[in-house]
Every structure is written in structure tokens, then in C-alpha cells.
Computed example of a mutant assay.
Amino acid sequence: MGVAAEAQLLQALGMPGPAASPYDESDETMVLSAPAEREHLHTRTVTCQGFRRRDGLWDIEGRMTDVKTYGFDNDFRGTIHPGDPLHDMTLRLTVDDELTITAVDATTDKAPYAICPQITPNFQKLVGLKIKGGFTRMVRTRLGGVHGCTHLVELLGPMATTAFQTIYPILVKERAERTAREKAANAAAPATSSPPAADGTETPPARKPPTLLNSCHAYASNGPLVKKLWPEFYTGEPDAAEAGAEGSGQDTAREKSGASS
């Protein structure tokens, strides 16, 4: 990926360069349509944060609370008053650059039953897992049903996304900066190239598809974003100008072929 393309990707991921503002405060916030008359009863809050550690690893922390606007009796805690969390649970995943979980810390500070916190040691089964496709399935294999806590397992979903959003943009940004430095340092050095093909042309090195390719609607291989960021992986229809240029090239090739025959 070129430096310009990586800069565009960083911006798309919400990770602009050092000189840019992380967001535009003048933008209007999108809101839902006006609701019907109603009464607020419950709020679930999920907060996820990502941190880079000095030892080179990353901490991803998630906290989930359930709060009701009314009080009710509970056999374990007595009366749970309005605003007092029914659930208050926190997870920390320590991961490396490859998103492999190296350490886990799980706590249940508030729950409706005394037995709830007893399951948190089971979350050590996450150590060694890699956050990638199939992560949810692997988590449920280890912590599903009676082997885990429903709410802590649910929290792992947004935490996995937070891990990707925390780590990937930084690594892309640093790779782009490293590539720019290397190009500047090697500008005066003799150019090296791939071995020539049989017809005498140079063979460019093969590239792996970007991690985000086809990961969601925005990054569909036939969409405008992929066409802009990774044109070599674009599978959509060419625009009119490209189609015209391609047709012109084919006509020229046919003319040359006819002239030589």
C-alpha cells in the first residue's frame, strides 16, 4: 500500500495524521426520528477503551453496567435503588500486535446473585486466542452456557472491535511513516527491481488483499472506497472514462495487428 493510500485509510478509520483534527466539530450529529411518548426504564452502558503499553503490548478494557430508573428488591443485595447498577462488570484483555490475547483480567463488581463473580476465573481460557474471524465462535466454545457469564461474554464483542480500532490504525500509520523514511534514505541508492519476465517486462511483487477488504458494506470490493484506496483489488464496473480508455487501447492494438498482417 502506498503512503497516500495508507493516509486515506487512516482517515477512513478515524486516525488522521498529526496535523489534522480527529473530528470536525462543525458536523451535525445524526439523530433518530422523534419517538412516541414513553418512560425511561433501563440503561445499559458499554464502554471500551484501548491503550498502548510501554512494553509493546496493548490493553483493551471493557465495562458494562445495567441501571434501572426504579428500585426493586433483590434476595442477594436487598433493595437495589434507582441508579444503582444491577450489573457492573469489567474485562481487560492484553494483546500483542497480532491481536493474540496474552493475559485476561475479569471482575464482577455488582450482580444480582452472590454466585456470579465465581465464574470470572474461567475467562483465563481466552489466553492464547487470536481476535480474528471466528473469534465469537471460539469464545462460545470455551465460555458458552454454564462455563461463562452471559454479560461478560457479550462484552467481548465490542472489545474485539475496539482492539482492532486501537491497534490497526496505529500500525498502519507507523508502517507508512517507516516506508516514507526508508524511501527518503534510499533515494540516492541504486534502484532494485524484480526479475524481468520472459517478455522483458518487470514483474511487480504480489500483494496480499487488505485486511479490511470485504469486511463490511463500506469495504466491498466493488465499492467506491475500495476503488479509491486499493484500486488493484477493485472488482466493480469501470467508469465511463476508464471504459473509454480501455476500449481505445483495444482499438489501437487491433489497428496495429491489422497493419502488421
Score class of each variant (00 low, 15 high):
4 A>C: 03
6 E>A: 14
14 G>V: 07
15 M>N: 11
16 P>F: 02
20 A>V: 11
23 Y>F: 15
25 E>R: 15
27 D>Q: 15
37 E>R: 12
44 R>P: 05
45 T>D: 06
49 Q>G: 08
51 F>Q: 07
56 G>C: 04
62 G>V: 12
63 R>L: 02
63 R>T: 07
66 D>W: 08
68 K>Y: 15
68 K>G: 06
70 Y>N: 03
71 G>H: 09
77 R>F: 02
77 R>T: 00
79 T>M: 07
80 I>C: 04
80 I>D: 03
81 H>P: 00
84 D>N: 05
84 D>T: 14
97 D>S: 14
113 Y>M: 08
117 P>C: 02
118 Q>G: 06
119 I>T: 15
133 G>E: 13
134 G>A: 03
134 G>T: 06
141 T>Q: 15
141 T>W: 04
159 M>A: 10
162 T>V: 05
164 F>R: 13
170 I>K: 12
171 L>V: 06
175 R>M: 03
176 A>C: 09
180 A>M: 06
184 A>M: 10
193 S>R: 12
197 A>I: 05
197 A>M: 09
198 A>V: 06
210 P>L: 07
212 L>T: 11
220 A>V: 01
223 G>M: 06
223 G>Q: 09
230 W>D: 06
234 Y>M: 02
237 E>A: 05
244 G>W: 00
255 E>V: 10
256 K>H: 03
259 A>F: 04
